[in-house]
Amino acid sequence: MEIKILGTGCSNCKKLEANAKEAIKELNADAKITKVEDIKEIMKYGIMRTPAIVINEKVKMFGKVCTVDEIKKYINDEK
């Protein structure tokens, strides 16, 4: 499973990445996290606000920091 955190490196982006790492740890999921900070790459996903989380190339949420539980749900939805 591939999880992408879209954002330019702001504090919310870093918090979202930390929450994603915690969700993977709690689920013992086989997942890889990639940070996407290039604005041109971010724009390819059609989002208007960061941070955003993309799982298996599907935008799951953008414009806010997901909780660990929300991310766990997104991961389970993709299994």
Rank of each mutant, 00 (worst) to 15 (best):
T8E: 06
G9C: 10
I71E: 01
I33R: 01
I71V: 02
V59Y: 01
M48T: 15
I47V: 15
A23W: 05
I33C: 04
K64M: 12
N56T: 13
E2W: 11
N19V: 12
V36A: 01
T67M: 08
Y74L: 11
L27W: 02
A29G: 09
A29C: 03
L27S: 05
K44D: 10
V68P: 00
A20W: 00
K14C: 00
E2Q: 14
G63L: 09
I75W: 03
I3H: 03
K4T: 13
I47W: 02
N12H: 11
I53R: 02
I55Q: 06
D69A: 07
V68C: 02
Y74C: 11
K73S: 12
T8Y: 06
K64Q: 14
N56E: 12
F62E: 07
A23E: 02
E70P: 11
K21E: 08
M1A: 12
E26W: 08
K79T: 15
K72G: 03
S11A: 12
D38W: 00
V54G: 11
L16F: 02
K15G: 03
D69R: 10
K21D: 05
G46F: 03
K79N: 13
K40R: 12
A20P: 05
G63I: 14
P51L: 01
I5E: 02
C13I: 06
I55P: 13
K60C: 14
E22H: 01
T34V: 10
I53T: 04
V36M: 02
E78L: 14
K32V: 11
G9R: 08
L16N: 04
K32E: 09
K64F: 11
G46E: 02
T8K: 05
M48S: 13
L27D: 00
E17L: 10
M1P: 06
I5R: 04
V54Q: 06
A29R: 05
A23F: 01
E41R: 11
T34N: 00
V54K: 06
K35M: 10
D77G: 12
D77S: 13
I5C: 04
E17R: 11
I24K: 01
D38R: 03
M43V: 13
L6C: 11
I24L: 03
Y45W: 06
I3E: 04
K44Q: 13
K40P: 00
V65P: 05
N28C: 01
P51S: 03
D77K: 07
T34R: 02
T34I: 06
